Simulated scan of single mutants.
Amino acid sequence: MLLNVSERGPEHPTPAGGLPVVLLHGLFGRGRNLGFVQRKLATTRRTLAMDLRNHGNSPHGPMSYPAMAQDVLDTMEQTHANPAIVLGHSMGGKTAMMLALTHPSAVKALIVVDIAPAQGGFDRLDLPENLDKLQFPAHLDLQGTNELLRPFIANDAVRQLMAQNIRQGDNPGWAIGLPEIMAAMPDIMGWPQLPAGIQYDGPTLFIRGENSPYISPANGPVMNALFPHHRLESISGAGHWVHADAPRRFTELVEDFLASIP
């Protein structure tokens, strides 16, 4: 499956610009959610922010991390961005890890944002099971979308996240593959069983939010086994949406890491 891509790069690219950077968003997000870091990196590098399957403007279909990793690989090849440095947040981080583990030659370096290769990562969204059966009026604007979701989603941040996935105007509705996403939630929250001994030997940076529970000391052994050359950085005061809570510090860590890649 080929994914929708938002591409940015320097106005006058040079051969010394370095490898392209692929950006992968989290659950119920889209490529533009990583817009701040993409704009910063695009001053010197080619960047590709992808909408993962069932998200943004990408096609819909059954979800699993091997399938999503293959989507990213196919899109990298289609856009002549293979190999690349791959950065993924949350669900996008798990997709990026799966890509690096199964197709290591396509990933020259890996950045994983606030997620571990383990069960968990999305339990705080607290979404009702029947959200895909939401009844829409004949017309919706942004304010109406917020009010429509309020009885179902009390958390303001989660409600705003979900609102971006609703098609507004006349004949509104879900713009994403919500039934496919909801059906795949056990797999999205989980982590597949991998062949014994598999690992990614490339340089890897994990970035966690200090106030987020999704990378813990208990994840250390599996992170060491799968990504033996990783390092972990924690951003003070940040939660799960690290790039939104501390954009400048986040970008600084990413740029420093990229500068260290030959």
Rank of each mutant, 00 (worst) to 15 (best):
L2M: 06
L3K: 00
S6E: 14
R8S: 12
R8M: 14
E11S: 12
P13Y: 08
A16V: 02
L27N: 10
G35P: 09
Q38G: 08
T43C: 09
T44W: 04
R45Q: 02
P59D: 13
M63R: 05
S64C: 07
A67G: 10
H80I: 00
P83V: 00
A84L: 02
V86P: 01
H89Y: 14
H89T: 02
H89W: 11
S90H: 05
M97F: 02
T102E: 12
T102F: 08
A109H: 00
D126W: 02
Q135Y: 00
D141G: 06
L142D: 14
G144I: 01
T145D: 10
A157C: 08
L161H: 12
Q168D: 05
D170Y: 10
G173W: 13
I176V: 15
I176C: 14
G177A: 04
A184H: 12
P186M: 09
P195V: 03
I198D: 06
D201T: 10
L205H: 02
F206H: 03
I207E: 09
R208N: 14
G209I: 12
V222S: 09
L226H: 10
F227D: 06
R231Q: 15
L232F: 11
G239N: 10
H240K: 08
W241Y: 15
H243V: 00
V254N: 01
V254I: 15
D256T: 13
S260T: 06
